[in-house]
Design a protein around this nucleic acid. Structure first.
Lengths: 214, 214
DNA sequence: CGTGAACATGGACTTAGGTCCGAAGGGCGG
DNA sequence: CCGCCCTTCGGACCTAAGTCCATGTTCACG
């Protein structure tokens, strides 16, 4: 009983190497080969493979293909194949229904081993990537708290004006408050940001918020 | 008379596909296969191939390998193979002695055609990449002239102080000039940059010179 | 040699920025 | 109800920033 696989990758030479690597022990059979997301979805629908092995970055987007195949229930399992070690890609792939995520640098035997696991229902991510994902998830749950995050809504409104070089008078006019009030807020803002003057505050703002809208 | 080739790529599956693609018509013979820059250099030295086909981004850097093989005269010609369409990579590869630059998405027949040209002494870059390189080179010979580039040395000194939030007095002290002189220069700088105040000038400076040294 | 550019400074003055004290209204939570 | 925070504003005042007029020296170039 062979494990039936469809695969989709837009690099012909790699695809050929892949087919050979997968089939060389007779344990797996590649029943369909495509070069884009659309072809992958059609092949999955047509062949109902045990595993759909998809390139992450092919035309039409591998993750989109994974999502569509998963939604349609057209494959027993989905695995992604890519050079990307970006944990965002891994997360996105898993959320799209992939049971596995493999790097293109794997050897043929390792690839077959992982495919076997996936066919048995086990999820797989390269160990290095799994550790990286864990680190990223931990960092994301504890975003660093900057002084600029402690500003009130009004204070932020005013700093945004300062960050693009506007005078207190101009800011007051825009926000319909007195220049005097803007000054008052600036004193508070400078204190919170530990900035000595508005230039420093503007630079801090730009650093934190990205490019100013010049 | 077959064309003898060594190839180096750190992805085993791709490498296998590559060997098969190259050898399938009998016109080429892969005499050596490696996975890193060092292996490529050693193989070239050992086999003196007609063509060394190198992956740009393998361990030890494909461009470095190309340079070493070219310096040693160990191969008739060098060709790079990569996913990168970055024209800086193309330029670097060519400067390292590569006669060809191919994208990994090429078909097997196209690959063989290009290898044949290279073996005959013709250089080859994918047409799209060649056009992109031309555009980049044209842009580089005519760098856009920014107002900030029109500042005198002294004006720039002063703007650098302003760009990190320093007062005129502080800048004067650092540069051993009067605050009065700094003010004078600021008037000129603001005029040249068409900035209304020092905050705008600081933002322009940061935009042009990158991050301020906070 | 004459001229222009770059660098430096003074005077006088106005506007902008920032600080600190004070006051008040509204909303929210204990 | 009370305290706290947010928002808004006034007064008084001092320093910083910016402008414009003027002057002078040095250096490089035609």
């Amino acid at each position: 009983m062979t494990i039936r696989i469809i695969l989709a990758d837009d690099h012909p030479i790699f695809r050929e190497g892949l087919v050979n690597s997968i089939e060389e022990t007779g344990e797996f059979e590649v029943v369909g080969v495509g070069g884009s997301a659309d072809e992958a979805v059609a092949l999955a629908f047509q062949y109902k493979p045990d595993i759909a092995l998809l390139d992450l970055s092919m035309p039409g987007n591998g993750i989109t293909a994974a999502q569509r195949i998963s939604d349609a229930g057209s494959a027993g399992a989905i695995a992604m194949l890519t050079v990307s070690e970006d944990s965002n890609d891994v997360t996105a792939a898993m959320q799209a229904g992939a049971m596995g995520y493999l790097l293109k640098g794997v050897s043929a035997s390792e690839l077959r081993e992982v495919l076997g696991k996936i066919a048995r229902g086990e999820a797989h991510v390269s160990p290095g990537l799994a550790a990286q994902m864990l680190r990223v998830m931990q960092n994301e749950t504890k975003p660093p708290r900057q002084p600029i995050d402690e500003l009130t809504k009004r204070e932020e409104d005013i700093l945004r004006g300062v960050a693009v070089g506007k005078s207190n008078k101009e800011i007051g006019s825009e926000l319909n408050i007195q220049e005097k009030t803007v000054k008052h807020y600036m004193t508070i803002i400078l204190g919170k940001l530990q900035a000595r003057n508005r230039v420093e505050a503007a630079l801090i703002a730009q650093e934190a918020w990205g490019k100013s809208q010049s």
